[in-house]
Amino acid sequence: METEIRFTHRSLVENSKSGDRTSQYQLYELYVDAMYNVSMRFLGIKEDAEDIVQDSFVDAFKNLEKFKYESSFGAWLKRIVINKSINHLKVKRLPLAAIDEHEYHLTNEVEYEQVDAMDILKVKSGIEKLPLGYKQIINLYLLEGYDHNEISDVLGITTSTSKSQYHRAKKKLVEIINGL
């Protein structure tokens, strides 16, 4: 099963490797919306997200020979988009994680109050209201499906920091949702 996922759109990828513009466009069409949404969740600004998506596709097509089917093409591309989005935030000097706050809560098991979790739209607007550092980690873990190892890699933090940051972020999210 895993093999099948990794080789999704293989012929399109192979044709794109040899510079076939039609295949490249087909891949682009398949992934552009997903990638745009990933970038929008991190950056929140339409123009910035468009720039990141554009650069990511250009980089991906230029470096396609480095893609060896160790993951699916979509996951590989998403990694490029996420890395570029996070670098963009770094360049803007926006805080990626509120490190000074989380240390106190390392051992605290957060008590999740009964949330109106069924209202997914509330959750969505709750995430948007999170401080930027928390928002990144919630995005990466809950929406992009990254584990703490991958998050620590992308954000340049330790796995334990990633875990504690995530729990803190989740608690904050619950508070926000309950206040809505």
Binding site: V32, D33, A34, M35, Y36, N37, M40, R41, A49, E50, V53, I120, L121, K124, I127, L143
Partner: peptide, 8 residues
């Protein structure tokens, strides 16, 4: 629900 943006 979170993928609600459409790229140009």
């Amino acid at each position: 629900v979170f993928d609600d943006h459409r790229a140009d």
